[in-house]
């Protein structure tokens, strides 16, 4: 998929460049673009290291477990058919907490463990259960405490107010997750007859 998008962009660039008489500028921009990528990565490097370091401290100190305890009551609402102490719910709660803290390296293995647990109790192998759909929808939306990458990018681009987007991001991501969850609930109700 990405191959087609990437190839398409380059082909389109040459076609449009030829039509607009900009071929030389297009060729030149490949070089500047590649150079900009490295500059940008270097700009991100410090913050990325610092924040990952902080998060590792949080993880080792058991902050994930502490936060997970706060999220647990929510699972009754999201996964009414599962008991709050089941291994599937435990893995899902840990995954959501890790995502919330921005521990993406830890979140994926926890999420895959949750999927494996959910698959054990899935009566229709090969077809996603309602719990799986809900869990994946929550994971494809993102609620994170600090969107570090974007903030750093903004600072590197010379923003006067790199943190200014923080509250808007929270509002926006919470709304998106709520809409996703409601949509999943409604769609689950719609084909209840087919997968019970």
């Amino acid at each position: 998929m990405m191959g087609y998008i990437w190839g398409g962009m380059i082909i389109a660039a040459f076609c449009f460049g030829a039509v607009n008489g900009q071929l030389e500028a297009v060729a030149q921009s490949a070089l500047t673009g590649a150079e900009n990528a490295v500059t940008m990565a270097l700009g991100l490097l410090g913050m990325m290291c610092f924040w990952s370091g902080m998060l590792e401290i949080a993880k080792r100190a058991g902050l994930t477990e502490k936060l997970a305890r706060l999220i647990r009551p929510l699972t009754k609402l999201l996964f009414p058919k599962l008991s709050a102490s089941s291994p599937a719910v435990t893995a899902m709660v840990m995954n959501m907490t890790a995502n919330f803290l921005g521990l993406s390296n830890a979140a994926t293995p926890l999420g895959l463990a949750a999927m494996a647990e959910l698959d054990k109790i899935n009566p229709h192998k090969g077809t996603a259960s309602d719990e799986m759909c809900m869990f994946v929808v929550i994971n494809t939306a993102s609620i994170s405490l600090i969107p570090t990458t974007v903030i750093t990018l903004r600072a590197a681009a010379g923003s006067q107010d790199p943190f200014g987007i923080l509250v808007p991001v929270w509002i926006c991501s919470v709304t998106a997750v709520i809409i996703g969850v409601i949509a999943a609930k409604l769609l689950a109700r719609r084909d209840r007859g087919r997968y019970l």
Binding site: L112, M115, L118, G126, T127, V136, T140, A141, P147, C172
Partner: peptide
């Protein structure tokens, strides 16, 4: 910035999660 910070790579997540347990039919996800 806001859109980037508040969304995820939907199809990548879908592929990794469902791929890991061999789900072919993702229904309404």
């Amino acid at each position: 910035s806001v859109v980037m910070g508040s969304t995820e790579t939907t199809f990548y997540t879908l592929a990794v999660y469902y791929g890991s347990v061999n789900i072919k039919n993702s229904r309404y996800t």
